[in-house]
Design a protein around this nucleic acid. Structure first.
Lengths: 341, 341
DNA sequence: CTGTTAGCGCCTTCAG
DNA sequence: CTGAAGGCGCTAACAG
């Protein structure tokens, strides 16, 4: 067991300088009048003695932690990593730190993490919900105690909570329309839990596009997955065994699209000639794969920054309005969905 | 400004139940003898009153935070995201939380983050050094105060600090040997700052393999980059303009390899016929690109878990030996480096 | 098994 | 401009 050196406190500095701890505190926090030469003496002593302010004591006293909790389903996802990078950047600029937990798509873990965040007295919480969560009671507990919560990407189904997201309905509608305009009619949609708004909204957009194009919705052309990347291969097998194969596949994320596409190619399917492909997220891989993948682009870093700033605003501003922010997205049309004649 | 509800304390519970705060504390922490029915009464009251233990007060008293600091150069990197996922998992299982900062490859930011970690009284620190850092004084300050620091992946050049990494020299040696055995003789190595051990070690491995194969080292065949992915295109142009082009390219990361390879392919180069390629990291992209990319695989999640566990061990164990852990790696030979006749 | 007491280190009135 | 005093909420002796 490593024993910690006893830490230097403001009292130690005060004693050395024969002044009071109050003055030391004032000089160190810098925001009150202290004679400039005593301030200098204090700063020097602090530096020489290796003083480092104890945030626990300070936080306990001030009842604020300058810490923001972040709960995501996993860290090793391209999109979430981008988002977290954006969050960290914005928080850091504002002098906040972030403490992260993974829910691993488990509601129980999400609840546990939320409770831990409360104990750590985070000043606010940023959340992207886990896969099949449909309860938000554990967040209400925080909110009721005055700890603001902002959701990003995967948000509660009812729009009653502050959130930052893209218009998933519209994006999926546009993508489906793009495929239809290219002449594809049997579009297979690979999606995930309909309890998660992002996937439900995308399916709705897909359906609407079919309807607006007078194409009958066929529920055999919707596959619900758990987003496990290996499912791409399974989906490919499913497609090969269909009596009437789709002429296009539209998945809710790029990775799934790419693994499925690669598996089909190995089985002799030509993309996009036999089957076209479209994904979602603009993962770096979508640009580099052959054929390059048509997808929906939106800026994860920006979403993160915006979510963080929205939260910080709630912390500091007088007004307490609900923020429902919709970020821009764009279709990125690449080779995988363009019909060659 | 949101005003926080005044929080429920053990004193509130004590008052309600007409007992002492000490007993409440004991019942809540659970590790001391309390009569079972008073314990139950306390637990009920705590739940009803919406009590949540204040970690600041507890930490201040106990002088331990159950928080581990993590400093990395960025969050949105596939390898680091994997590592962080591993770290979070191990810490979480041990009841620890993690607080993350990005250095953005800036020594100043790294130093600032380290100081903030100290103020937050983290129990330990996990670090992957920033790009051109060559000073470790800021970490010594923590270590001297009894806060253990474990480095992973990018570690201090001198091996005097605890660390978890792979044998970069050996991996690069093996990869270069593989290329040489395939018949490639003019192997371009694209690397990064030689102040970072990982890149210096890989260059050394590359050189050793050449020497052991009686191929003269040619410094025109080493490119030093800042790891910006756009550099891949630049490198491709550089290659096209060389009087004597390389017959193989070995880069220190997959992303660079793929962008360079794709750029060359667009300019009419055939891979691997004209130029072979090998990368490093086994990024998911390496498997899905055409041709699939030969690379070095090592498990980021495991490295993270191991780094976290190493740190936790130092926190709890009596012995205080240095841990220099070398993780396994393996060559993954794919299409991009295999000579076809 | 339970209560009393005394801080952990810091900040913030209130006096001077 | 500076000092004294009290308390943020919790835990760890020390007594009963």
């Amino acid at each position: 067991m490593i024993k910690k050196a006893k830490q230097v406190t403001i009292y130690d500095i005060a004693k050395t300088l024969n002044i009071s701890a109050a003055t030391v505190s004032r000089a160190l926090t810098g925001n009150v009048d202290v004679k400039s030469d005593t301030r200098e003496k204090i700063l020097n002593a602090a530096s020489n003695m290796g003083y480092s302010s104890n945030n626990f004591a300070s936080n306990l006293r001030k009842k604020q932690s300058k810490m923001i909790g972040v709960i995501v389903h996993r860290l090793n996802s391209h999109f979430l990593a981008e988002t977290l990078a954006g969050i960290e950047k914005s928080l850091n600029m504002a002098g906040y730190h972030m403490i992260i937990s993974q829910s691993h798509e488990s509601v129980a873990a999400e609840i546990k993490a939320t409770k831990a965040m409360l104990k750590n007295r985070v000043d606010g919480l940023l959340v992207s919900l886990c896969y099949d969560n449909d309860t938000t009671r554990h967040f209400d507990e925080l909110i009721n105690q005055g700890v603001p919560v902002v959701f990003f990407d995967r948000t509660p189904i009812n729009g009653e909570y502050d959130h930052v997201k893209i218009d998933n309905f519209k994006a999926a509608y546009e993508m489906t329309m793009h495929l239809i305009r290219q002449g594809y009619k049997r579009i297979l949609h690979i999606t995930a839990s309909q309890r998660r708004d992002v996937y439900a909204d995308r399916l709705a957009g897909y359906k609407q596009a079919l309807q607006d194009s007078n194409i009958a919705f066929n529920k055999d052309l919707v596959l619900v997955t758990d987003l496990n990347p290996e499912y791409g291969v399974e989906a490919a097998n499913y497609i090969m065994n269909m009596k009437a194969r789709p002429d296009a596949v539209f998945t809710v994320n790029d990775f799934l699209a790419v693994t499925c596409m690669k598996a089909l190619q190995k089985m002799g399917i030509s993309v996009p000639r036999d089957i076209a492909f479209a994904g979602f997220n603009n993962d770096p891989i979508s640009k580099l794969v052959t054929p390059s993948l048509t997808t929906v682009n939106y800026d994860g870093v920006k979403i993160g920054q915006l979510a963080a700033r929205t939260l910080l605003n709630k912390l500091t501003e007088k007004i307490n309005a609900k923020s429902n922010i919709v970020m821009a997205h764009e279709l990125v049309v690449r080779e995988s969905s363009v019909k060659k004649n």
